[in-house]
Amino acid sequence: MSSERPVFRHPQAAKNSAGYSRKDYEGAISTLCAGCGHDSTTNAIIQACFELAIEPHRVAKMSGIGCSSKTPAYFLGRSHGFNAVHGRMPAIAAGANMANRELLYIGISGDGDTASIGMGQFAHALRRNLNLNYICMNNGCYGLTKGQDSATADRGSAGKKGEPNPYSAIDLCKLAIELGASYVARGFSGDKQQLVPLIKGAFAHNGLAFIDVISPCVTFNNTSTSTKSYEYVREHIEATNTFDFIPLQQEILAHYPEGTSQEVVMHDGSIISLHKSEAGKEVTSRRLALDGLEEEKAKGRLLTGLLYVDPQSVDTHDIVNSTLRPLNTLGEADLCPGGATLAKLMDGWR
């Protein structure tokens, strides 16, 4: 069930440059458990869209199946949404994106949806570099079916049932970098300050932006024995960088914060300026990104932040060399060669 929010809006509510208030980016009231990490992630998405002044109807929300995949009902209520089939969000998002390259696509998935049943589609969406803001709300367990371990659960981690997970975990960020992702980040639903810029950067990215959001399940996997609990994540988090996202419209006015050690100019001209904890870690190096993840893992830490970005990324449309016009706007004049041409083709088969 989802219920609608009251339509009342405070007359003095702040509006963004597109004339929308923050409320215009909200959706129905969440039916997830109180305290669910996904709701915080949802809020970060709302915040990012509001701050970027994205027109809500220019966004299409895609998702698979699972607790996380329910969340598109809870943000951007003015956008079209598609809660599809378990593990198949990437393909459906690919088709949608091929039909109209002018919209923004946000794909919501979870660790079961991405790392198990949808692993193949995840991998191939990355290979194709679909222009999609792919957010995986990762809680290490299957919530809707009551707490089974997922493929991202760490070995030895135990949820509410108390049985330690015997299998090794899939690190989706490492995998994404290996598979050719062009924007890879990890956030924590409990750290909105870091998460909102990561989402904004993803919107500016031309290609698949993958954000693995550690998003604890309060009901089934928030135990003291779980490595995906709020407490554990807070204690073991290691931010690779903090950054400011400067959208294109503000570029000229931008005041670059002090201590910036690296700037990345995105495809649309937006700028990500990174505040580094350590010097020398190039966020545009695939190899260094993987090294960073490995190093922190060896220390028992979970690396978060923007892990890798390829600002020169080329998306699926450019790979298949499709028209700059939305394909769904083309009609007979563009698509059909007509009767006379057909008659000529017939001669080739005589």
């Binding site: 598609f82 393909a91 459906i92 998002a93 690919a94 088709g95 949608a96 109209n100 394909l327 769904n328």
Partner: peptide
Amino acid sequence: MAALGIVIGASWN
């Protein structure tokens, strides 16, 4: 599965 997913996503849009 992905082939039809692409078709359904595109048709939806």
